[in-house]
Simulated scan of single mutants.
Amino acid sequence: MLDALTLDQIRTFVAVAGSGSFRAGASHLSRAQSGVSTAVANLEAQLGLLLFDRSGHRPKLTPQGEAILADARDILLRVDAMRARARGFGEDVELDLSIAVDTLFPVTVAGLAIAAMRRLHPSVTIRLSVEPLGGPLQALIEKRATLAIMVGEDFRDPRVVFEALAPVHQVAVVAPGHPLATLGSERQVEVSDIANHLQIVLADPTAQSQGRDFGVISPQTCRVNTQDAKHALIVTGVGWGRLPLWRVREDLESGRLVRLATKSLGRRSQLESESYLARRLDEPFGPAARSFVNALNLLVADRRA
């Protein structure tokens, strides 16, 4: 009987479980509710299991249904990946390529990879967005981006695959006239000292980090929506914060900014995170995307050498 299972039945089961009712599942699939109910009932009969408890106002997954749901989602992900790979083999060059880049990653490196790709595919239109925190992942989920460059391990989704690229370093910095800089010239700065001063932090424009804060130490915060704003406020002495080393290297060399003299925020006040190339499992890379990825990997390999 299991050989008679169909992808339609599995997709219908997942849609009903995800939407919370047969009516909502039918609406999501643009199908009649009776057809959805029949597909799920046939799946239950073929599996010999009751997937939903229908005794209440809304259908509720049984313990067996919960277990089967995980398998069903995994099957659909693998099927979508197979279809995406098959489409990619015979695909023409894309008309456009959308890329979302984490604000912590040097956009100049992405730009060099784009330039290398366009030498091979000059007709491709590029859409590039630079987004903080959960922005690049959200762009992939919403299909606003074909691929994304993300930094760190805080944002993950089973629909997205990740490939490590290169480390990105962030440095805790402050303007030389700030009280924390003055204190740091006398002794090691402690966390209790840092917490007494305003911290400049990036705000997440998505719901990906709802209820969570990353690297926030001070109860006094100023939240900004761009890395440029964060940099400007730190340089002008409003507060302290972490910024990518590639962005503040010249500021540190010229003395416009100084590292916080503390061992509480990493050695030399420096934190290392991995950057990742991310893409949807069900979206194939066309020739232009593959060219971009190849160029990007060569560039980050050269930077590591």
Rank of each mutant, 00 (worst) to 15 (best):
E142I: 14
G20F: 09
A67L: 12
V124G: 11
V189F: 04
H28Q: 10
A116S: 02
T125R: 15
R256N: 09
G152C: 13
A4K: 07
N294P: 12
F89R: 13
D53M: 07
L260M: 01
G111D: 01
L243Q: 06
G177N: 11
F155G: 00
L296P: 04
Q227D: 07
T103R: 04
R249Y: 08
E91T: 12
A175D: 05
A289I: 04
D102E: 03
Q270P: 06
R58G: 05
S275H: 03
N42E: 03
D3F: 14
S273N: 13
A67C: 05
A70L: 11
L7K: 08
D204N: 02
A45E: 05
S55I: 07
A24T: 15
V109F: 08
E142L: 12
S209F: 14
L133I: 11
L265Q: 03
D3N: 15
L202T: 09
H178T: 04
L95R: 02
A148Y: 13
A203M: 01
G239A: 00
G25Y: 10
S98C: 02
P132Q: 14
V258Y: 14
A72N: 01
A207D: 08
G48T: 02
T62S: 04
N196D: 06
V293W: 11
R85S: 06
A32S: 05
A232L: 08
G211A: 11
A17R: 00
T6V: 07
H57F: 10
R249E: 09
V40S: 10
T226V: 13
I114M: 14
A24D: 13
R73N: 09
Q188W: 00
L61R: 14
F22G: 15
Q188K: 06
A110E: 02
N294M: 06
L180W: 00
R127V: 01
I141D: 09
P59M: 09
D302W: 14
V224T: 06
R247L: 10
S55T: 15
A172H: 06
D92I: 15
A288T: 05
A229P: 03
H169A: 02
P167I: 11
S34A: 06
A232S: 02
L299M: 15
V161W: 15
A232R: 10
D80H: 04
V160I: 06
L257I: 01
E142S: 12
R119S: 13
L69Q: 03
E186Q: 07
H169Y: 09
T103F: 15
I10D: 13
P132D: 06
D193H: 11
M1P: 04
K230A: 03
L277G: 07
Q270C: 01
D193R: 11
L265W: 03
G88F: 00
P63N: 05
R54F: 00
D193N: 07
R212L: 13
M82P: 05
W240P: 00
A301C: 12
G239C: 05
L277D: 08
V224A: 07
R304N: 01
S37R: 14
V168P: 10
A110M: 13
A203V: 13
S273Y: 15
Q170W: 03
T38P: 07
G35N: 08
A175Q: 05
I10P: 09
D154R: 08
L112S: 07
G134K: 11
A116F: 14
E131V: 00
L51H: 09
L202I: 04
H169I: 00
M117W: 00
D157R: 12
D302M: 11
Q188E: 00
E91I: 02
R127E: 08
